[in-house]
Amino acid sequence: MGVRKSSSHHPLWGAFIFLALIAPAFSSSFAAAQPQRIGFVDPQRVVDSTRLGRKAKADLARFIAEKDRMARDGAAELAALRRAAEVPGLSAQERATREEAYRRKALEHQLLLRENERDVKSEEAKLLRYVMRRADDVLRDIGRKGGYAVILIDPNAVGYVDKTNVDLTERVARELNSRGK
């Protein structure tokens, strides 16, 4: 039985071509049919367990210490003004002047404390944002490579997390640590 040399006349050749053409369409529809993965990352644990996060915490502690120092200095000045206003034997005019200075300083001090509180919150937010922006890059990579459709980062928005399968926190932390090197 002779075999035909030219493949263009093979009876199955048309079927091969047909399959080759529709194969990509099938593969993409299979991929789409795959269940989309969902991940979860706990930002607080990322901060606690990464070098970057620990540095951010140390920076915040230093910032708070600086603010506390200012508050202490202000309080010491205030106390000195109060003592000066309570010195016995002052003339009524002198006492009034000193009390006025004390009142003014007390108001300034209150303002300073309020500003300090606001500044600390703002600095904390800035540092957290800085850390999470780095973590976002990692998340994007993990999401893309791992086929995750959604990665949640708000623990309050999640009712239940299967930590063994879904929690990506450690992976993100590990990756973040390795990128910082």
Binding site: R51, L52, A56, R62, L127
Partner: peptide, 9 residues
């Protein structure tokens, strides 16, 4: 004050 965090990368 200063931030060592920004030196990390």
């Amino acid at each position: 004050w200063w931030r060592d965090t920004v030196l990390e990368d």
